[in-house]
Design a protein around this nucleic acid. Structure first.
Lengths: 139, 139
DNA sequence: CATTTACCTACTATGTCAATAGGTTTATTC
DNA sequence: GAATAAACCTATTGACATAGTAGGTAAATG
């Protein structure tokens, strides 16, 4: 199940894409707009910075900004960064060769197929696909 | 992430489909074949019985058996029974109208789409699709 | 130099998951 | 009808992750 961490991270990205065109946005603003605890967001955003999704600027007038164009972020990379892995089944999350039954396991192919489905779905979605201001879409 | 409970449940179903053609199979045998703690399986199998997937027969010579043909079980229903829900995102797991932001949430459509993908995938798979003795398949 | 902001470390409450333990009931077989 | 083999039942535990809190330090700006 996709964690709150990952979902909040995506919402931060969306918020920045929509409100931070030019200047850095203070976390306080994002937290208020999104209705999320600022303290909790701090932890999440910290990982997003060290993971290379965002850049932070300290001091007055500081805040966070995207380091790439919204088009260049996939949802998959955001989830994977926040979750450690996108793996949907624990036998895949651990190094996949770790299960002694792997070679004869009748369910493994199912999990592999589902894992690929999930991977392709989320890496096929881009940040721009989630923006309110998407081109050619009705209100 | 799909739990051990659900994965074990599926393996029990496969084991029964392959070994319990006529007679009920004692849990002890399943546990040994699958290398899973019998005690833990007891809890899982109990829920499978009350959920209508299996039937148990007490006493000597007893055990568990499928109540339908393997073709008539979908993987989705097994997972959903064991997991409580197949929901992949917590905002969907709770009654979906519960989030006050739902109407304006920019991420909700993503989760709904993923949820449908997952649902269709697992309800499209049948127990027979996982059996070693599938027709027309090479060793 | 005061203010605003990011950044850092630690803690905690809650809950779930996987698993264990020990007992009771039910049915079969000898 | 007693021994046996099985399901069935209730409770508990240890480990871990998750979501969130608390309180402080460092950096940049006006």
């Amino acid at each position: 199940m996709i964690s709150t961490r990952a979902r909040y991270a995506i919402r931060v990205m969306i918020d920045l894409a929509e409100n931070g065109k030019d200047k850095p946005i203070p976390l306080k603003d994002i937290a208020e707009r999104q209705g999320i605890s600022k303290k909790y967001l701090e932890i999440i955003v910290k990982d997003m910075v060290s993971g290379g999704l965002l850049a932070g600027a300290s001091g007055k007038g500081g805040g966070y900004r995207l380091v790439r164009s919204p088009e260049d972020y996939t949802i998959g990379e955001i989830i994977e960064l926040m979750e450690g892995a996108l793996a949907s089944v624990s036998c895949l999350a651990v190094a996949s060769a770790s299960c002694p039954r792997a070679s004869s396991c009748e369910t493994l192919p199912l999990w592999l197929e589902y894992d690929k489905l999930t991977h392709d779905f989320f890496y096929g979605k881009r940040l721009t696909d989630l923006l309110r201001s998407k081109a050619g879409e009705a209100l």
